[in-house]
Design a protein around this nucleic acid. Structure first.
Lengths: 229, 229
DNA sequence: GCGTTATTTTATCATTCGATATATTTTAGA
DNA sequence: TCTAAAATATATCGAATGATAAAATAACGC
């Protein structure tokens, strides 16, 4: 079977020429994603990653010349997994008011952070140890979402359906509420004996996020819009 | 339980017999606190810590037989630094209503997280790599504060001055809002070009936290209609 | 003073780390 | 097919890691 329909010849950086190679790369990235999330960047060793991927360690260095390169691939892959989930759902919300969009998107992010705490752990770990090439990933993958959502926050503020204040701080407050309880999972378990990833807890956190950032006016309009246009 | 990391050989790190020894230990812990926060647990090397403390590396191993022991000492020291700031201020709030207590305490925690992101980074890093003896530190240092504040949250809920819901989730939402923007400092800087630790930003975040969790009723009481009994 | 213990230094260990050199196998393209 | 390149395997490197051994120094009780 000739699977040439997918082979785009416009390869600029690194396009594996053989199918087997791509499968190997995917196995390596999948294994690295687990181990980076479990052990952090410094704690993860290329030998352990290669072992889990069932490849020789020098083969890993062949596909990803440095450990930092592998981290970038993992970060891009992890963020892309989120974006694949994020984008269609976000576009399906077209027409809704900004506050509703934000509420739905960040409630969805609560569930994503519970299922795959890797993303947030990865970013926190990168911010802590600061070693990997964080800048490129932030620019290419994170900035579009960030600016899109900050724009929605500003729109919601103009509509009077969201608290005033620096949209950046609101964005990171939303992220913090959505992800912190899961990225501190071990601490939560030790303190409460419960795994925050239980479905009821996840939904409770999503509901809490909505109540905090998008309170529903109970009796009449609590925040009447100051200017309608 | 394995809370005997120091009870087995109390003569080692418990009571240094010479003053010089205590000063050395303090220098080591101070250096380790910086490097653990900068590099994470796995990324910090005992050699580098010893170099910053200006002691020979085997001397470090003499005072803290394993790297994990050193981490525990650093974690306890870091948390104690927070508790020394927390306890007097909290006790000075006696008589206030629970919501006001919580607001003041967590606004203060915003400032603390900005000045010393080490604490939150330390806990997130410990939750990620999971290696150091997190359990003992959580039990002895974190649990008292956690249960104290959860109690205040419940009291505020009963008074109708705080959102209903799982106090644990509210606690970690407060922590997340207070600390996330600072623990993701590198990402924030890359996206916005601004350091979130700037004083105006810190105060804006503190103000945002108050608005989110303790909204002041604008006209009349907005959150009053919960039946009180 | 002396002896004992606590602390510090010097030298070094075994292991693991990320990375390289190179040989061998596999694939694509002629 | 044949061949050059791509992909994988084998063996190993130097550096850094956490940890020890043992000698040397300092402090304290007597």
């Amino acid at each position: 079977m000739s699977a040439d329909a997918s082979s785009g010849s416009t390869s600029r950086t690194r396009e594996p020429r053989q199918q087997r190679s791509r499968e190997t790369q995917e196995r390596i990235v999948a294994a690295a994603s687990c181990i980076f999330a479990e052990q952090g960047y410094r704690g993860a060793s290329t030998h352990e990653i290669a072992a889990r991927a069932e490849v020789a360690q020098p083969l890993l260095m062949y596909h990803f010349p440095t450990k930092a390169d592998l981290w970038v691939a993992v970060a891009q892959d992890t963020i892309d997994a989120f974006l694949e989930r994020f984008h269609p759902r976000f576009e399906a919300l077209e027409g809704l008011d900004p506050a509703s969009k934000l509420r739905i998107v960040f409630q969805d992010y609560v569930r994503f952070a519970a299922e795959q705490p890797e993303l947030h752990k990865l970013m926190v770990d990168a911010s802590v140890c600061g070693e990997p090439d964080l800048a490129g990933v932030v620019e290419t993958r994170l900035r579009p979402v960030f600016e899109l959502l900050c724009g929605e926050i500003e729109a919601a503020q103009k509509a009077g359906t969201m608290l005033p204040g620096d949209p950046v701080l609101l964005y990171y407050s939303l992220v913090g509420v959505a992800a912190t309880v899961f990225s501190l999972r071990r601490e939560v378990e030790l303190l409460t004996g419960r795994d925050p990833r239980e479905p009821e807890t996840v939904e409770a956190q999503a509901s809490l996020l909505a109540q905090l950032f998008f309170p529903v006016p109970r009796a009449g309009r609590q925040r009447e819009q100051k200017n309608d246009d």
